[in-house]
Amino acid sequence: MKTGSEQKTDMNKTTKIIRGSVLAAAVLLLILGLFQNGPADIWNKAVRICYECIGIG
C-alpha cells in the first residue's frame, strides 16, 4: 500500500504528464490550424461588424 507522500508523488507525475500532453495537443492543433488557414478565418469574421454581438441579431 502506498504512503500519502508516494501517492502525492504519483499525482504530481500524472499532473505533469497531463500538462505535457495538453501542451503538445495545443501546439499540434495550432500547427494544423495554421495549415488550414485558421487565422484567415478568424480575421474574416472579426473584420465585419458582428450584429449578434452588438445586439442587432
Binding site: L23, A25, A26, L29, L30, Q36, G38, P39
Partner: peptide, 22 residues
C-alpha cells in the same frame, strides 16, 4: 469556428484556447 465546424474542424481556435489555458 463552431458554426462552420461541420465543414472545417476549428483546429486553430481550439489550439489557441488550449495554449492560453495550459
Amino acid at each position: 469556428a463552431l458554426l462552420s465546424s461541420k465543414y472545417r474542424f476549428p483546429y486553430y481556435m481550439l489550439g489557441m484556447l488550449l495554449l492560453f489555458g495550459i
